[in-house]
Amino acid sequence: MTQSTDIDPQDASTPDRYAPRTGPLGLSRRTRARLTDLAIDAFLFAFGLLMILPLVFLVSNAFKTPQEMVAWPPRIIPEDPTLENFRSVLGDTPLLLWIWNSFSFAVLSMIAIVATSAIAGYVLAKFPFRSLHLLFLVILATAIVPFEVYMIPLYFQAQALGILNSIWGLLLGYLVMSFGIFLIRQNVMHAIPDELLEAARIDGAGEMWIFVFIVLPLLRGALGALAVLAFFQAWTSFAWPIIVATTRDAYTIEVGLALFQTGFTVDLGRLSAASAAVLVPSVTLFVILRRNFVQGVASTGMKE
């Protein structure tokens, strides 16, 4: 990965050199820069809050009574918080089972993608055979084909295997990730010098040993980023689970929620409670793993 060293942004340290100079309002240049920064901070702060406001309201609505739900203006902190919505959602739906389905599917998909990407990415980066290069081109070419394009035939493959309505059926669509292979390949090329591998070979190390004990540890960062990406990709998937999982017990949380809401559209409190129950853990997980995630997503931009 192109690890960008954190360059100082152009402003923070420089103004001193040009100070003091007085601007049109009689303010020193330094003060003006400070004020501008303050204004930008205020704007970004407000913008950030606005971005998460819908989610904040969603969580808050989950604790509201039906009367308060329709009140204008809507309150962020409910006046008369209630757990009734959660209680009735947990009573009416196997919400915890759905969360478990999503979670195990996401973890298995993550393991499969990290494993396949690590080995394939390494081989494609460090073994310059023409056959492999051709393979790499094929992987690259299929990377742009959206999942939605080929999910119908894939559905029939799952059907033939008899794994519909199961975690394995869900997994079938999420075993490999073209981008993951690509990401690891780029990382291996940049982060692992050929000399290191050659030295190990001269010392008599087997190829597998090299991969496990030299390459993998060096790829920790990239694999971590890929793992988080893969997990969230599976966790938030929708189109595939909704065709593969048709029994109530097989739903992922996304599908369960979507179908639940077709039955109870008017009951926003309960819908919000169910949504909040899913949202809070995944957002928490994201905030904890933010570094990995940002690194992973940022590296998707490094394709060229």
Binding site: Y155, Q159, G162, L164, N165, I243, T246, T247
Partner: peptide
């Protein structure tokens, strides 16, 4: 109706 279309043709479940 969707799950019937999918479930019956697959014979699974």
């Amino acid at each position: 109706e969707k799950r019937i279309a999918l479930g019956l043709t697959s014979g699974a479940g």
